[in-house]
Amino acid sequence: MTISREDVEYVAALARLELTEPEINEYTEQLNSILGYAAMLERLDTDNVVPTAHAVPLHNVMRGDQVGISLNHEKALKNAPDGEEGFFRVPRISLT
């Protein structure tokens, strides 16, 4: 499988990364090299293998429905690049 420039641009768009031309070229080459290496996985027959998503098998880890401590305004917004009147502010949201 080969990863094209277009693939890299598509992935960059999904990941919200603005890439420069040299970066696009570099990542195209490197992703091809790394995923080319990863192609060795195809050699393994895994049809009847159950995937492992968690290293330690746990289930039903839950908490009670009890109200805990929330952050106050100051703490919640302390790290905000643009916080005003208790809101996090963002520039215009375009629909596309």
Partner: peptide, 24 residues
């Protein structure tokens, strides 16, 4: 970039799911 690609539509089974099976 690599991780986004591995999860993206059409490649999930070949990469991410496969890797999880190999993890087993």
């Amino acid at each position: 970039m690599l991780g986004t690609y591995a999860l993206s539509s059409g490649y999930y089974d070949a990469y991410y799911l496969k890797a999880q099976k190999v993890r087993t």
